[in-house]
Nucleic acid binder design. Structure first.
Lengths: 239, 239
DNA sequence: TGACACAACTTGTATTTACAAGTTAATTCT
DNA sequence: AGAATTAACTTGTAAATACAAGTTGTGTCA
């Protein structure tokens, strides 16, 4: 895959700075080079640089202050709730292990728990289905079911989801970016299944998210259901 | 109050279009006048118009499509969860009644349930405190406690919160906009207090949000705790 | 009639230039 | 030395211009 995609300049700049922040080249509290310096470095003009920075501001990587500069905030802890960055970065990567309960496989859509109607194309192509369990400090915290249409995702079912996040794979391997989405959120009591996976007793309150994620590929949506034991690890999110 | 605030042009344009959408002048599915037309109408240039539209896109009021135009999406259903638009617009205003449990009053901070440390100034000035109950179709759904520092909010405690949302009052009366925030989210079991207010039995799962909202006024944060009976009205949010 | 090509739209990207406004540190004056 | 001013930064706003790229309907040609 690895399409070298002719990105517009401002996105190139955005990607570079973004990577620098997530790689720790710039640390929280640091001040980025001034816009004029960035112009010089990337051989472009202020509006272009500013567009890149706007995006970083929007996603929470930096904050700007007139007269001062662009202050690095670090990798955002999820926008909304567990949202644009995926579960992995929403809780922090430390001590997080992903266990695959059901490996990615192609099967029919299971619409019983789906809060959203399926599009025709989606129904036709079938779905890629998998279940994962996220474990923090030996304690299972998230149990999630993901479904997405089997459209143009070659070799996906053979990919290893354990270490890399789903969003990263889609981003780097298939040039699919999650651009937004909607979710329904509720508190429920753990059923037998959940009790087992999340290791909780009957009557334990569980956070349930039913989500539909939108991507940069038109008509390609990701459906997921997340069950979370929020007893020790409350979900944290900025917006 | 009512400071006529010298807004920059792009914000003026943004406010006008935003109002047109929330007032129903433009309906969902409509296509906005083209950028060039908007330039003519508002006597400005494309970069300015585009900056206004960018913001509308970002907040979910419109979507843009190259070659086609700007498509109206309607008033966004909350960004993240119950977030930038406040509870009122997150669940839709139909059949929503707000009952004031504790009228706004000035008191000391109650830090027992607060997940965030207070700043010195905030502690010093004391806090404006109130509790509200949101009722949908005669069913109590949200119970929320709000605290904010008592800084430069003249006459706030005498304002009527029942019909207008807190965010609207802050926006129109004090020129304070909520720009973002962070929240912790968990599922809990209703305690005695919650059982009574939300009219649920013991052992009922409740959605609990502990939030710190950031505003356009530096150093002014709003702290709120929301308890939600998500049995019938799952919280819906886009991001 | 049907398919193709084109023209007239739309938004997307990029440069250049200019000035306003906030911050900071050095300099100057008292 | 201390306070006030200033100069040199920073980001914020705005205009004018150009071309690229996607969409749509019109028109022409077969």
């Amino acid at each position: 895959m690895r399409l070298s995609k002719n990105l517009p300049q401002y996105k190139v700049v955005y990607e570079i700075i973004r990577k620098h922040i997530s790689d720790g080249v710039y640390l929280k509290g640091d001040i980025l080079p001034s816009e004029n310096e960035l112009c010089a470095v990337h051989q472009t003009t202020r509006p272009t640089i500013r567009k890149a920075l706007d995006r970083l501001v929007h996603e929470g990587y930096i904050k700007k202050k007139q007269g001062k500069g662009s202050i690095v905030m670090g990798v955002p802890q999820g926008v909304g709730i567990l949202s644009l960055s995926g579960t992995t970065s929403a809780v922090g990567q430390e001590n997080l292990i992903t266990e695959i309960i059901v490996k990615p496989e192609i099967r029919q859509w299971d619409t019983t728990n789906l809060a959203y109607p399926l599009l025709n194309d989606e129904e036709e192509f079938g779905c890629i289905y998998f279940e994962r369990l996220r474990i923090m400090n030996k304690q299972p915290v998230f149990y999630d079911i993901t479904m997405m249409p089997n459209i143009n995702l070659r070799r996906f079912i053979s990919r290893n989801l354990e270490n890399k996040s789903l969003f990263n794979i889609l981003r780097t391997m298939y040039d699919i970016e999650v651009t937004g989405g909607e979710q329904r959120l509720m508190a429920i009591l753990a059923d037998k299944n959940i009790q087992e996976y999340l290791n909780v007793k009957e009557g334990h309150p569980i956070l349930h998210l039913n989500r539909k994620l939108e991507t940069s590929r038109e008509g390609f949506f990701i459906y997921s259901q997340v069950y979370c034991n929020s007893e020790k690890y409350a979900i944290f999110g900025t917006f």
